[in-house]
C-alpha cells in the first residue's frame, strides 16, 4: 500500500478537528461552511408566509391563517428573533417557543 498518510498525521488532524469543533463558532473557524446560524422564531411570520421544509404532502408551509400567528414560525438569523416585532406576542417581540396570541 502506498503509505502517504501516517497514523500520526491522522491523529494530529483528528485532534485538531476535535478542538476546532469544540471552539465557539466564528466565521473564520467554520471550515468553509456557509450556512448562517439561524433560529426558529415564533409569531413573526406574516399570514401564509411561515416556513416548513418537510416536502410535498406534509406541507404546512404557507398555511398560517393570521399575521404573527403564535404557533407559526420562520427561520431567522440567530439572535434576531427576540428583537423582531410581533403584535400578538406578550413581549411585543418574536419568541423562541410557541405562544398563545394576545389580542392585537
Amino acid at each position: 500500500m502506498n503509505q502517504t498518510v501516517s497514523a500520526a498525521s491522522l491523529a494530529l488532524a483528528f485532534g485538531a478537528a476535535m478542538s476546532i469543533a469544540a471552539a465557539p463558532v466564528s466565521a473564520a473557524s467554520h471550515g468553509g461552511a456557509m450556512k448562517a446560524e439561524t433560529e426558529k422564531c415564533y409569531g413573526v411570520a406574516m399570514k401564509g408566509k411561515n416556513d416548513c421544509k418537510a416536502g410535498a404532502g406534509t406541507s404546512c408551509a404557507g398555511t398560517s391563517k393570521m399575521d404573527h400567528q403564535g404557533n407559526a414560525w420562520s427561520m431567522v438569523p440567530k439572535g434576531t428573533c427576540e428583537k423582531t416585532m410581533s403584535k400578538t406576542s406578550s413581549t411585543g417581540k418574536g419568541q423562541l417557543m410557541e405562544f398563545k396570541e394576545k389580542k392585537a
Binding site: 488532524a13 478537528a17 476535535m18 476546532i20 469543533a21 463558532v25 473557524s29
Partner: peptide, 12 residues
C-alpha cells in the same frame, strides 16, 4: 484537501 477542517465540519 484539509482533513482537520473536514473532520471538524462533520463533528460540528
Amino acid at each position: 484537501f484539509d482533513l482537520a477542517a473536514t473532520l471538524a465540519l462533520l463533528l460540528r
